[in-house]
Structures are given as structure tokens and as C-alpha cells.
């Protein structure tokens, strides 16, 4: 049973980045699938507080980086599918670049001395 300490405390910005990357690689997804897929990759059950995920999705939607559309799943239930927009893709590139630089810098700082 996962407890609070196990839930990954993710910064707001990084979750946004993760969601966008996920949509970029996986294509249009609905929130549940996204959560499941992320749990899969992280190899960790319930890693996300669902509240932060939905908050992230609505934030990205308000920025115009993703759009949501109600569709039917394969099992004929309705779900809201989110997809990256063109401006979202551009923002993703920008964020990617920033992240790479940040991690490179941190790597050097924290590990380079070792």
C-alpha cells in the first residue's frame, strides 16, 4: 500500500513537462491512461496525486499547449482525450532544452566534484 511518503513530490513545472512529453510520444491520451502509463514507466503504483495531474492538464489547456476532446474508448466508454497543439510542441522543445541545460549543469555541480 503506497503511503504519502511514496508519492513522488513533483514540482509543478516538471509535471507539466512530463505530461507534455508523454502526450508527444504516446499521442492523444485521456487522463487515466496518462496516469497509468506514467505509473508504468516509473515502476511505482499510484505515484501521482491525481489532483496535481488534473491541475496540470487544465493549466496546459489554458495555455493553449494541449487541447481536450471527448471521445469514445475502445471499450465504448467516454473519456476526454488530450493532445499536444502546435504551440505546445514548440513550448515542449523550449522546455526540453531548458531541462537538458539544467540537468547538465546540476550534474556537473553535484557529480563533477566527486
Amino acid at each position: 500500500m503506497a503511503n504519502k511518503a511514496d508519492r513522488l513530490e513533483l514540482l509543478q513545472g516538471t509535471l507539466d513537462l512530463i505530461v507534455m512529453r508523454g502526450l508527444a510520444t504516446m499521442g492523444p491520451q485521456h487522463a487515466y491512461a496518462l496516469a497509468a502509463r506514467l505509473a508504468q514507466i516509473a515502476d511505482h503504483p499510484f505515484p501521482l496525486n491525481q489532483g496535481t495531474l488534473y491541475a496540470s492538464l487544465v493549466r496546459l489547456e489554458q495555455r493553449g499547449w494541449i487541447t481536450g476532446e471527448w471521445r469514445q474508448t475502445e471499450s465504448n466508454r467516454e473519456a476526454k482525450y488530450y493532445a499536444l497543439t502546435r504551440s505546445g510542441r514548440r513550448a515542449l522543445d523550449v522546455q526540453n532544452e531548458r531541462w537538458r541545460r539544467l540537468t547538465g549543469f546540476l550534474d556537473k555541480l553535484l557529480l563533477g566534484e566527486a
Binding site: 496525486n49 491525481q50 489532483g51 496535481t52 488534473y54 491541475a55 487544465v58 493549466r59 489554458q62
Partner: peptide, 11 residues
């Protein structure tokens, strides 16, 4: 309620 609150704070 927590989900709704976080959603509201974001949107």
C-alpha cells in the same frame, strides 16, 4: 474535494 481544490487553484 482535494482534487477539485487543486484543479480550481490551477484553473
Amino acid at each position: 474535494d482535494l482534487v477539485k481544490e487543486q484543479h480550481r487553484d490551477a484553473r
